[in-house]
Design a protein around this nucleic acid. Structure first.
Lengths: 160, 160
DNA sequence: GGTCAGGTACTCGGATACGGGTTGTCCGAGTTCCCAGGG
DNA sequence: CCCTGGGAACTCGGACAACCCGTATCCGAGTACCTGACC
């Protein structure tokens, strides 16, 4: 899995802690956790394209949350960064070579492949678990672990 | 996800259809679905190292199932091919840069990271779904779709 | 003092290199089988 | 006919390249702000 997913999730929570009034540039968000700024910018662009963040150029510009944390699921972020295609893709090897059965007799749909069906079922469980958790729950748990984190971020942003 | 997973799963079912009496070489299994023989051999070696298959060298050698299909879960095959490490790995970015909190005050365990905790929970659902399905169920479903597949494979192997 | 024009600095956004890992290929060690020769 | 020894063919197993995607970087277009001059 791409490392950008972790960065994107933390950045979204950081944006929530920063507050909705002002945007935060990719450089600030990157510096906060010592990440490569230009590359994090790439990931944030993906989040903006997915409608999770909004971006504004120029001074005082940057990124901010496009909607409340509670309405952003982990699945949204993962899909935005990793792409919508599923991890396991059936290449239909059973249709190639001498093992290929009669195409007319058998169903031509990829959903008929028992292997693909089973793998898709597992991946569906993964996606469902991701969709069941939203970023606000993440934020609440993080605040419970480190209650001063939000204040420290805001103070650091103000001092920049 | 690695393409070898699909190959390994189909090969295991094919080995079951071939019967436990004789081994099947990687070249035969690869030719059946028109796959690169040497690379499939690599995947089958991984399955052998994991204790899913047994290998025997020399003429009449090849691979055969080490245990019944019903006792091989999808998780076993995926872990053998992809490796045991989990897809999402927490790099603890919250501990780097100015955003790093007081290491003494906060828990030092990676399990405390709310992001990692949520992602791990989803991945656990995936692994659980994989472990809940065994290869014998795959075989049964495949036979229901194409009842003549097993016979055609045995005939082709005998004709080689 | 208010207004406006210009410059400047900062932002995102996409185009551009680099590296590690999956994909793919090759050859050697080892084993089994076959066959010829001898008893 | 039965036994034995040698050779040959076939197999896995690991070592060796090629390609692709994730990682990382850089520069340009555009915008907002600030500054200064002018009315």
């Amino acid at each position: 899995m791409s490392e950008g997913v972790e960065w994107a999730l933390h950045s979204c929570v950081n944006l929530a802690w920063s507050g909705p009034d002002r945007a935060v540039s990719a450089a600030r968000l990157a510096a906060w956790h010592d990440l490569p700024a230009a590359y994090l910018n790439k990931q944030l662009q993906a989040l903006a394209r997915a409608g999770i963040l909004t971006s504004s150029p120029g001074p005082r510009g940057g990124f901010r949350l496009a909607r409340p944390l509670a309405s952003i699921s982990l699945m949204d972020v993962v899909a935005a960064v990793e792409g919508p295609e599923e991890a396991f893709r059936c290449t239909e090897i059973r249709r190639r070579g001498p093992g290929a059965g009669d195409p007319a007799a058998e169903g031509a749909d990829a959903a008929d492949c028992a292997v693909a069906h089973a793998m898709t079922r597992a991946e569906l469980a993964w996606r469902r678990a991701l969709a069941a958790q939203n970023l606000d729950e993440i934020r609440q748990q993080a605040e419970q672990q480190a209650p001063e984190a939000a204040g420290r971020l805001r103070a650091w942003l103000a001092a920049q």
